[in-house]
Design a protein around this nucleic acid. Sequence first.
DNA 1: AACATTCGTTAACACTCGTTAACTGTAAAA
DNA 2: TTTTACAGTTAACGAGTGTTAACGAATGTT
Lengths: 225, 225
Amino acid sequence: MSKVKVLLAEDEESLGMIVKESLESRDFIVFHAKNGDEALHFYKLEKPDILVLDVMMPLKDGFTLAKEIRENNKIIPIIFLTAKSQTEDVIAGFNHGGNDYLKKPFSMEELIVRIKALLSRIELKPNLETIKIGTYIFNKTKQTLQYSSDTIQLTHRESELLFYLHEKKNQILDRSFILNKLWGNDDFFNARSMDVFISKLRKKLKKDTDIQIINIRGYGYKLIC
Amino acid sequence: MSKVKVLLAEDEESLGMIVKESLESRDFIVFHAKNGDEALHFYKLEKPDILVLDVMMPLKDGFTLAKEIRENNKIIPIIFLTAKSQTEDVIAGFNHGGNDYLKKPFSMEELIVRIKALLSRIELKPNLETIKIGTYIFNKTKQTLQYSSDTIQLTHRESELLFYLHEKKNQILDRSFILNKLWGNDDFFNARSMDVFISKLRKKLKKDTDIQIINIRGYGYKLIC
DNA sequence: AACATTCGTTAACACTCGTTAACTGTAAAA
DNA sequence: TTTTACAGTTAACGAGTGTTAACGAATGTT
């Protein structure tokens, strides 16, 4: 998995630097903006995975910035950094959706836990529908395989077969199990039909060379990923 | 594969029951403990695969319980259930060795996704484990033998045979044991078939001259490495 | 209704892998 | 040493599988 990109907007130089370094030491990529306008610029340029925004900033405050970004992006998680004096009700107004907040002063532990929590929530939601297979993203309902920006359409049979292969990834998936599940019986002709679909799937999965569908002669297939 | 055992520690009777039933309807086996002590008792008795622990519980809270279990088990996944007011505690939860947490109220979908995510993380790691045999790297799942930059593909039988040879490396691996394990019986023809595979393995392993498959006449083979 | 497209099935031919056979080599028993 | 049973190796064989293309029913389009 690629590193997580964090956009940090914080006008206090020294605090910003410390946070940036701490996050970088935990394998995040951090873009440190010194004000709201700079943050917006970084946002458009770098497509971060999560925003950590100070509320009080020169040129553009954190709330206004968040509002502008939310117009185009409903899912990116935002964590606000608020001063002690900020009234609870204002914060509460922003504390929903993908949002969270931290009162200054905060510990790095606290920040990192919240970042991870928000990221995992966003990562896991699409998991109900999408399945990662190597570098592909497989959507069973849509019957699609995504490889970076390309989308490959699968037929119903291909999709079902891939689903069962993935369910038993790195283990043997029994021939007769698939045949009974997808075709209703495991006679010779259906078996040959299945072989054709295995062949088609291999072709559609060959962009990621780490993925393989291995045949176990006489038993079935094994999806390696 | 056998069913996944979930240990659920939740003191609220009705909530616990609903979660238990929902999980059971999705083919999990659920042990429902009403407090921390009972949970520890179930844990020792039933060897669950994953823990779902409420933080606030009578007798023993979730964090303390997790800490105790972590002393003996570093890998079992733990999900904490926290009340909305306890978000700060989440930090402590991660420090106690928790892997994930859910804020109450939560949806069953969310819980199930998180359980599956954690289980797949733990289940698949050992499967893709690589074994060093001399200067070769053997991957049983992928059925490959790597020698520096070359990758040799093994057949299923070759792979299985090599696996059992390695399991008893530098010791005698009984002929009849392999034959019964891989062929189901140890008749004459299967025995001759096995000899062929030994020959094939020797050929594929001969790049490292320190590796040998020695025959113990009348008993079996010994993999020297 | 006529035509075009899609998708699963069937057929045909190439290739693979485990089995079997045939011949050779070797350690232990006689 | 001779005998004999066990093991090593190679090659042939056939069932199982890989792949491509043709086909036709079902669906979509004009």
